[in-house]
Amino acid sequence: MSAVDTIKQTVTANDVVLFMKGTKTMPQCGFSSRVAGVLNYMGVEFADVNVLADEDIRQGIKEYSDWPTIPQLYVKGEFVGGCDIITEMTLSGELDQLLEKSGISFDKAAADKIRETNA
């Protein structure tokens, strides 16, 4: 299967996918770590794809999303953003809204706690 097909299949088969450097339990980059940390803390179930483990995926995801950097978050097959955007959306509450709208369960109290701590 080509890298694009693999990516397409991954973002279709999983509601939430994070393309990252390292894994959700062992991130290997501060930016990937921040996004995985937010999702973990909010109790969001997500698939992690370690781009460092596959050079074709690492290049392929940049083209697929038209986005030059990692991490990249997908929800319901749609590209949501990288670290800056996810951070902003977490703090503004837009990420909560997106998850709610997409029918993805998460811990609202934990999300509020992140906002409280960073207010």
Binding site: D66, W67, P68, F79, G81, G82, D84, I85, E88, M89
Partner: peptide
């Protein structure tokens, strides 16, 4: 947000971004 970031990436150009 995504469009803003893409506009910045485009203004910087592929070479500089890479």
């Amino acid at each position: 947000r995504i469009a803003r970031h893409r506009a910045v990436h485009a203004a910087l150009g592929k070479e500089l971004v890479s």
